[in-house]
């Protein structure tokens, strides 16, 4: 049996079981895989966040020493990129951020060429963000590296979904039976899709709330409910997640005006009082204060928005660590 025989083996006979080399979508993960990522993230969080008295003076671990993680962001993003970068660095991986011109879909170098060029320089994990749904999936079929989807079009944003679930689990202990309201532009939201898959797999209920122009009927499935009136959906909510309203969508006539949107779907103190006492408020950021959420809510005691940010690093460390096991 033990080829590299040492007493490591006695303590860790279990192997981590992510089925795929890539993390593309929560839709593709099993319950067990999601639990594994969350459990691992809990330990990862301890690397950089003090628990009770104990403080680590060094907020990193050497697990991914010698591995190279590339940030390939075809769409501007500071939060997600910073979070992944920090996660990789806390695991001691080498991190390279590639600046890609936004207009790289023009002929000449294709996106596959770009990634193959990176691979030729020996990278291990590529974290990809792209405005088009399906790009990480496309790349995963064409390259040897592990692809991590950091958000593709309106498809999925699996690490965000996982950090939302992690945050809820931290708060409520268990996900099963919770009712999360996702409010706003579901149609264009990759976060909503990842949350839907992740939460319903773990036994939670997701209620999608927004004007019908922004809530696609096609997302109705077991565990998912669609409502158009926020006030009547709030009383049954354990958690409310507000999605960012992109101002430019207004011009495509999805809704008449920001003012009317906030009037019906903006979360303010009065509205939140309709919800259960323990109801928490999430937002994937960056927030539009006064549009989808009032400042006093965003900064208030029910907001777990900053917890989400902290947990994002932990979850992404967990993802990178577990994927490194498939290299």
């Amino acid at each position: 049996m033990n080829k590299t025989s040492d007493n490591f083996n006695s303590s860790s006979i279990q192997s981590s079981a992510l089925n795929s080399r890539h993390l593309i979508a929560l839709e593709k993960l099993t319950c067990k895989e999601i639990e594994l990522i969350l459990e691992t993230a809990r330990e990862m969080k301890k690397v950089f966040i003090a628990s009770k008295e104990g403080t680590r003076s060094v907020k990193k671990v050497p697990a991914l020493q010698g591995r190279t993680v590339v940030m390939l962001f075809f769409e501007p993003s500071t939060r997600t990129r910073n979070s992944f970068e920090l996660a990789a660095k806390r695991l001691s991986a080498d991190v390279v951020s590639i600046a890609v011109s936004v207009s790289s879909t023009t002929k000449g170098e294709s996106i596959i060429d770009t990634v193959r060029n990176l691979e030729a320089m020996a990278c291990d994990i590529i974290v990809v963000r792209h405005k088009s749904s399906g790009v990480p999936e496309l790349l995963s079929h064409k390259v040897r590296s592990a692809i991590v989807n950091a958000g593709d079009g309106a498809h999925e944003h699996p690490s965000q979904g996982l950090l939302d679930i992690f945050t809820l689990k931290e708060r409520f202990g268990s996900i099963e039976g919770l009712n999360l309201l996702i409010v706003g532009d579901i149609l264009h939201s990759r976060v909503a899709r990842s949350d839907i898959w992740g939460l319903t797999k773990l036994g939670a209920k997701v209620t999608l709330v927004g004007p019908p122009t922004l809530v696609p009927q096609g997302l109705e499935m077991p565990g998912v409910e669609i409502q158009y009136d926020l006030d009547s959906a709030l009383p049954s909510a354990d958690a409310v997640m507000l999605l960012r309203i992109q101002q430019e969508r207004m011009e495509s006539t999805f809704f008449p005006s920001l003012r009317e949107y906030s009037h019906r779907y903006g979360l303010n103190k009065k509205r939140l009082s309709l919800a259960k006492k323990h109801c928490v408020v999430l937002h994937p950021g960056p927030i539009n204060r006064g549009v989808e959420i009032d400042s006093e809510i965003a900064d208030g005691p029910r907001s777990v928005i900053l917890d989400q940010v902290t947990n994002g690093v932990a979850v992404r460390m967990s993802i990178l660590y577990l994927l490194a096991g498939k290299l």
Binding site: T4, D6, F8, S11, S12, I13, Q14, S15, S16, L36, E39, T40, E43, M44, K46, V47, S51, K52, E53, G54, V61, P62, A63, L64, G66, L91, Y321, L322, A324, G325, K326
Partner: peptide
């Protein structure tokens, strides 16, 4: 997370709980 054989192991190890309070 401190193992020196992470580049060689076949079975990727599960991270277990650390607790130094």
């Amino acid at each position: 997370l401190y193992r020196d054989d992470l580049n060689q192991v076949l079975d990727w190890p599960v991270v277990k709980e650390s607790e130094i309070d």
